[in-house]
């Protein structure tokens, strides 16, 4: 464990908590893409199957359970409890166009052709594009509530911090995982436009408005 990965995991945890608080407190999931939340649930499910047969540390196990529970809990809140507030007309990104390529690529480019390894690789590829429906929704509505932009900032920061973790591990532990690194860079790049708007607008108290 290193400081970059710890901060990354905490940023990820904070993002998930911010989202649950936003939906629970405002009793609304307006501005949130249910499609992205479905993709995150698929990512965590396919990545954390090793919970069954591999114990790494209490921290690792607890965080995996929290991420799984929070992602399914968010889907429950969005598609059941607060279904009336779900923006079905704007949340129209075709996620099959993200899932299929990730699955095909995982079958072609992986470290080992074994079920758990393919699923892990699939989850890495899918996670790198899982935020697209959410960014698409924000661009369609043209704006986002400030708490939603804080959620996105934390979520985007988590994988950006992981990049520093990979740099650290390359020099300190002399090991690297190209699949995770390339996907992590793609994932972080997708947030760049949002990061720019967040830092230049939201941090100055303005609302996050995307140029229409």
């Amino acid at each position: 464990m290193n400081i970059f990965r710890l901060l990354g995991d905490l940023s990820h945890l904070l993002a998930i908590i911010i989202l649950l608080v936003k939906i629970w407190k405002t009793r609304s999931c307006a501005g949130i893409s249910g499609k992205s939340q479905i993709l995150f649930a698929v990512v965590y499910t396919s990545r954390y199957l090793d919970l069954i047969n591999a114990f790494i540390s209490p921290y690792n196990t607890i965080m995996k359970i929290v991420f799984l529970a929070a992602s399914y809990g968010t889907i429950y809140l969005m598609y059941m409890k607060f279904k009336a507030t779900y923006d079905v007309n704007h949340d129209t990104f075709r996620i099959e166009f993200l899932i299929a390529p990730a699955a095909v690529l995982a079958l072609i480019v992986n470290h080992a052709f074994e079920p758990l390894e393919i699923l892990w690789t699939f989850s890495i590829y899918l996670e790198s594009v899982a935020i697209l429906p959410q960014l698409f929704l924000v661009s369609k509505t043209g704006e986002a509530e400030s708490i939603t932009s804080h959620y996105l900032f934390m979520l985007g920061s988590y994988r950006a911090l992981y990049i520093f973790n990979w740099i650290y591990r390359y020099y300190a532990e002399n090991h690297y995982d190209l699949i995770a690194i390339v996907a992590g860079i793609v994932q972080t790049v997708l947030y760049c436009d949002f990061f720019y708007l967040y830092i230049t607008k939201v941090l100055k108290g303005k609302k996050l408005q995307l140029p229409a």
Partner: peptide
């Protein structure tokens, strides 16, 4: 391989 080590990442 490299994969073993990054298994401890979330």
């Amino acid at each position: 391989g490299t994969r073993e080590k990054s298994k401890d990442e979330l």
